[in-house]
């Protein structure tokens, strides 16, 4: 499976602001870290890949076919955690997952089974058992629920926009372990401005600045190329010019 972007542009304000500026990418199975400062265009690129936004120019192809024409066949493969994960406050975690499962077209038995498994995987089984409503969840618990819903239906393309925001260190470790398992069968694109998350879980790196891909490749090669000791130095090397102030070293 290959997800490809060809000369992808997204402009706003009649072309005065270019959120995504001629991005060309080829994504295969594995974890890709999309790194960039705030406003670099990471979330816009994510939304273009989910088809929530239409490109101003360019194409997104899945195995050579434009995703615009694939419709439900493309959405069937998608798992998406948006940057600001929203939920229904009066639902319980299980109800929310069952709702998303119904939207994804899972039958009742599969939905129940997967919801139970995912709640356990993200450490929300106890809250589900107590029928605790989402409105009483902490930020980290809501984020874990967001991760769980993205994984429903065994998607083959996983797009995580700032997935570790609000997660405590233990949960971040658990999330990285989960990514390693998923990497074998899926295209995983991880967008974040927290370098350590990407450094530990994404072998492939895409550096984005002002809507442009300034560099992409295997993490180890990028480091060797410039003699960097860590990914942070790679980032600072390629994305200098003020953006480095926005980078969190976690």
């Amino acid at each position: 499976m290959e997800l490809q972007t060809i000369d992808l542009y997204k402009e706003y304000a009649g072309g005065r602001k270019m959120a995504v500026n001629g991005v060309n990418l080829r994504l295969h199975k594995g974890v890709y870290g999309l790194l960039g400062a705030n406003g670099a265009g990471k979330s816009t690129l994510m939304r273009l890949l989910t088809n929530l936004l239409r490109p101003s120019r360019g194409q997104i192809l899945l195995d050579g076919q434009n995703i615009k024409g694939l419709g439900a066949d493309y959405r069937r493969l998608l798992g998406y955690l948006p940057q600001n994960f929203a939920y229904y406050p009066d639902f319980t975690a299980r109800e929310f997952l069952l709702y998303v499962a119904a939207l994804k077209g899972l039958n009742a038995a599969a939905a129940q089974k997967q919801a139970g498994q995912l709640l356990a995987a993200v450490g929300l089984s106890e809250q589900a058992r107590r029928r605790q409503r989402i409105k009483s969840f902490s930020g980290g618990m809501k984020q874990r629920l967001g991760i769980a819903q993205a994984l429903l239906g065994n998607p083959q393309i996983l797009l995580f926009d700032e997935p570790t925001a609000g997660l405590d260190p233990t949960e971040r470790v658990r999330f990285r372990q989960l990514l390693k398992v998923l990497a074998a069968d899926c295209i995983v694109l991880l967008s974040t401005h927290i370098i350590s998350d990407v450094a530990l879980s994404a072998p492939e790196i895409i550096l984005l600045e002002n809507g442009r891909v300034v560099r992409s490749g295997r993490q180890a090669e990028l480091m060797t190329e410039i003699g960097a000791a860590n990914l942070e130095q790679v980032y600072l090397y390629y994305c200098q010019g003020g953006a480095s102030d926005n980078v969190k070293i976690g």
């Binding site: 989910t50 088809n51 929530l52 439900a72 959405r75 069937r76 998608l78 998406y80 948006p82 600001n84 994960f85 929203a86 939920y87 229904y88 998303v100 119904a102 939207l103 994804k104 077209g105 819903q149 239906g153």
Partner: peptide, 18 residues
């Protein structure tokens, strides 16, 4: 529009059955 639209519109059945 407060945010769940992201999930509805990217799910297989969201735009139609949803």
């Amino acid at each position: 529009y407060e945010g769940v639209n992201n999930l509805i519109l990217t799910s297989r059945r969201g735009p139609q059955a949803g």
